[in-house]
């Protein structure tokens, strides 16, 4: 029976970053690894060849991933890398601070409105009454008055 293979070496695993890492995170990871490898290169003369190879691989992986077009191509070719990541199944408010704050604020506003202590809308996005934004217009107001009569 065919089954997907979750274990796969990739530029991401080499650099120790998630497939969803930003370019900055990738750059930082690459720079950190390069620094470590250069240190080891100085301290471990017997392992120089292996360290040089690894350094080349780290640089190549970093180059491929920090350039957007190259990264897109790499991701397309290795679609499994992003897909084979355990996801968070909780509702947004339990995951993202922004969603949490947003939902809590709405809940608190609704709660207090129900208790007779409504909060002012945070912004126009939360308002529904814009009567105050109407401007007087003599012709229109005349027609409306006529219509009421």
């Amino acid at each position: 029976m065919f089954m997907v293979d979750l274990s796969a070496d990739s530029h991401y695993t080499l650099l120790g970053v998630a497939p969803t890492a930003t370019a900055d995170e990738i750059r930082m990871a690459r720079d950190r690894l390069v620094k470590e490898l250069k240190e080891r290169h100085r301290r471990e003369p017997t392992n120089r060849d292996e360290l040089v190879e690894r350094l080349k691989a780290v640089n190549a992986a970093g180059e491929a991933l920090v350039r957007p077009a190259e990264r897109t191509k790499y991701d397309q070719k290795n679609a499994h890398l992003r897909f084979f990541t355990v996801r968070r199944a909780a509702a947004a408010m339990f995951i993202e601070a922004g969603d949490r704050v947003d939902i809590l604020h709405r809940a608190i506003s609704a709660h207090l409105a129900g208790a007779g202590v409504p909060l002012r809308p945070l912004s126009d996005l939360d308002r529904v009454d814009f009567l105050a934004d109407a401007s007087p217009n003599p012709l229109l107001d005349q027609l409306l008055a006529k219509g009421r009569r």
Partner: peptide, 30 residues
């Protein structure tokens, strides 16, 4: 300046029958 939907729609219909002078356009916009 609160008024009903029907009244506003009626006013728009009437304005659209008028010549498109600037004051008519401003009234339509409002």
């Amino acid at each position: 300046m609160a008024c009903g939907r029907a009244e506003l729609s009626g006013a728009i219909a009437e304005l659209e029958r008028m010549d498109r002078e600037p004051r008519v356009r401003l009234a339509l916009a409002e």
